[in-house]
Design a protein around this nucleic acid. Structure first.
Lengths: 253, 253
DNA sequence: GCTTGACCCTGACGTTGCGTCAGGCCGCAG
DNA sequence: CTGCGGCCTGACGCAACGTCAGGGTCAAGC
C-alpha cells in the first residue's frame, strides 16, 4: 500500500530523470505533468506516479514528438500506433532532406577543393539540381509507368548470381581506382573511371536520384553508413579521387 | 553599362526567386538583404544585384545554415570552406540522431504490432538502449584497442571473394525467410532465422551499434536506402517477419 | 530566535524564421 | 472621386525551453 511514498522536490526529481528544472516548470505550466503541491509554500512535489509519467514523456520526446502530441498520446494511449506511423513518415522525410543537404555540401566542398574561388554559380547549380526533387516525391516524377515496369523487371531479374557479379564489378573498380590514384583527376583515365563509377551507381540506384543523393551524402560521412553497405566501405583516397574527377574533371566550361 | 536596369517591387521579386514577401521584409529588417528605396513612399525596390545576393542566400539556407551564418559568409567569402565543413558535421550528427529515432520507432512498432497493449516498459527499454549511445561517440566506447585491431584484420581480410560469399549468405537467408513466412514468429524456426539474421548483421557491422541502428532505421524506411545497399533491398514481408521474430519471439518474460 | 546559504517560486524576455493579422498609406483605373 | 489592389509598419504567435530578476522558504548552526 505505502510502497515508496517518498516525494521529491524539483531539483532531485529533475536530476533523477535527466531533465532540467526549467523543463519541469514548463511541463507544469502547459499541463503536461502536474506535480502535487501540498507544501504550504507552493513547492512542487513529485512522487512515483509522476516519475512514471515523466519517463514516458522523455521517451516520446526522444522520438521527436511535440509536447502537444505527447499529451494527446498519454490521454489516448490507443492512438500510439497511429502517431508512431505518422512520426516515422515525418522523420523519414526530414532525413531525406538532410541527405540532400549533405550531398550538396559534399559536392560543393569537392568543387571548391582545388583552391579556386568559391564559384557561386557552380554552388548554386549543384544545390539547385539536388534540391529540385525537394518538393513532390520523386516516385511519381521519375518513376513513370514504363520506368516502374523497368524496375519491376530489374527486381524480377535479381538473383544471387547477379548480386555477386555486381559485387565483383565494384571490387574491380575500387582496385582500378586505387591503382590510378596518382593520376590527374582531369585526365582521360580518371574520366573513364568516373564514368564507370557513374554507370555502376546508376545501375544500383535504378536512376533514382534520391538514392544517388543518399549515396553522395554517405560518402561525405562514412561513419554513418548503414549496415549492408559497410561491405562497400570506400577508402577515403578513393572517395576523394572520384569526387575530384567527377566535379573538376569534365572541363571547366 | 545599363544592362537590365529593371527594378522589381517586392511581390514580383519574391515570386521570381521563390520566397515570400514576409521573408524579404524579415531579411530587410535584420540587415541581410537591403533593398533600394528610391520611391517616395518607401516602397522596396530590388535590382539585379539584390537578385544575386538573394539567390546566394537561398542556396545557403537550403544547406541548413542560419541567417546569421549566411550574413557572415557573405561578408567573408573566404570562410565558406570552413563553414561548410562545420555544417556537414552538424548535419551528420543530426542525421545520426534521426536514424536513432527512426530505429526506435521501428522497433516500437514491431513490438506493439501483435495487438498487445503498448507496453511502456518495453518501449522505454528500446529507446533507452538506442539512445544510450547518444552521448559520446561509440568509436571510443565500443572500439577499444583490441576491437580496433579486430576491425583492421577484418578490413585486411576483405576481398571480392569474401564479399561474394557474404552476399550469397544474405541471399540464402532471404530465401529461407521467404519460405518460412507463414510460420509462427515465436516458433523455433523463426527464432533460428532471427539468429542467423543477427549474426550476419553483426558480421557486417563489426558490432558497431551505430551502424546497426542505421540498419534498423533503413528497414523502417526503405525508400531512403542509399545506393549500394539497394542491392540488398528487403521485401516488406521479410522485414516484417524478422522484426516480429526478433521482438516478440524470445518469450515475453 | 536569528542569520545564512541553499533551494524554491513566479513572471518575463530571448531564441529562430518567419506566418498572420490589423490598421493605414499609395497608386492607378473608371 | 471612389474603389481596389499593393505596399507599409508594428505586433503577436509559435516550440521548448534558457536565462535572468526579484523575492519567499527551509534547515542548520550560533
Amino acid at each position: 500500500m505505502a510502497a515508496e511514498r517518498r516525494l521529491f522536490n524539483v531539483q532531485e526529481f529533475a536530476r533523477r530523470v535527466g531533465v532540467t528544472v526549467r523543463a519541469l516548470h514548463h511541463y507544469d505550466r502547459i499541463g503536461l505533468l502536474r506535480p502535487r503541491r501540498n507544501r504550504p509554500a507552493g513547492y512542487r512535489l513529485y512522487g512515483r506516479e509522476e516519475l512514471l509519467r515523466l519517463e514516458q514523456i522523455v521517451v516520446l520526446k526522444s522520438l521527436g514528438l511535440k509536447l502537444s502530441e505527447i499529451r494527446e498520446i498519454l490521454q489516448h494511449p490507443g492512438s500510439v500506433a497511429l502517431v508512431l506511423r505518422r512520426q516515422r513518415r515525418l522523420l523519414s522525410e526530414r532525413r531525406a532532406q538532410l541527405d540532400r543537404a549533405l550531398a550538396a555540401i559534399a559536392a560543393a566542398e569537392a568543387a571548391l577543393q582545388p583552391g579556386r574561388l568559391p564559384g557561386w554559380e557552380m554552388l548554386q547549380k549543384i544545390v539547385k539540381e539536388i534540391a529540385m526533387q525537394n518538393e513532390s516525391n520523386w516516385t511519381e516524377k521519375y518513376y513513370s509507368p514504363e520506368a516502374r515496369a523497368a524496375i519491376a523487371r530489374r527486381r524480377a531479374a535479381w538473383s544471387p548470381e547477379l548480386q555477386a557479379e555486381v559485387s565483383r564489378q565494384w571490387a574491380e573498380l575500387f582496385a582500378d581506382i586505387e591503382a590510378a590514384l596518382g593520376e590527374d583527376p582531369a585526365g582521360a583515365k580518371a574520366q573513364a573511371l568516373a564514368a564507370r563509377w557513374s554507370k555502376l551507381v546508376a545501375g544500383f540506384t535504378g536512376g533514382n536520384p534520391a538514392i544517388q543523393q543518399g549515396l553522395n551524402a554517405m560518402w561525405a560521412d562514412q561513419q554513418n553508413w548503414p549496415a549492408p553497405a559497410s561491405a562497400y566501405r570506400i577508402k577515403p583516397e578513393i572517395q576523394e579521387f572520384i569526387l575530384k574527377a567527377m566535379r573538376c574533371g569534365p572541363a571547366p566550361r
